[in-house]
Amino acid sequence: MKSKTVVIGTGSTLAMLVAAGAQASDGYDAPANWPSPMAEHARASVLVDRFEYASPDKGEEALVWDFQAWYGGDVNRVYLKGEGENTQGDGEDAEFENLDLLYSRLIADFWELQGGIGYQGGIASNDHPERYFGVINLQGLVPYRVETDLDLRVSEDGDVSASLESEYDLRVTQRTYLQPRLEVAAAADEVPEFGVGEGLNSVRTGLRLRYEITRKFAPYIGGYWEKSYGDTADLARASGDATEDTGVVAGVRLWF
């Protein structure tokens, strides 16, 4: 791994240089024009964990997505993660709750430590307020195979927030999975413009039943319950939104 250099720039300029593992000079005595007997290649992958149409009881219907794409090797990777929604019929463009560009390193068998920059707002649209973050993320599998993503954010104004996302796949049949999900958001600072209060912001739990037509294409249906708390709930009330809601979803999970 010594030959890997990672350069992280701001904005969209981020490059990962992976020097090819030239072995010849390391005591193998192989002529320079011989290939490495086992060449490793960088890979890229996109996982769209949720791409769904959500129909809430009280709120507006929305198209919701949650994806992560990466490029790199076994240990060092560059991630692009995005989560957001487009509320239907409000005449506004889509909003990214977060769009993060992260450098990721495998620090233990099941854990990656990630760091980089994040963005919140509407891309190429003035319909939503925007802000940038510094992001630190711990992503991996806790024992009992609970998929976990814990992140800590500091905004450009110094506002601190954190969130936890967990999901678990319960195998019902060889192709059918029941997936409970939990999302918890909290903040150390109030940011009314983004509807963020101090303390526990919100809890959202969901249950999805997915069928893998192939490993890479799996439609699902499900439902969720969400509630906001404390100052965050007050902010929601003030803008006329519900503080507690339930809904149903239908969507598809994809990777390629």
Partner: peptide
Amino acid sequence: LGEGYYNFQERTVA
């Protein structure tokens, strides 16, 4: 990239 990608004999709830 997948986990148990080719394994369709995993243990299930049943």
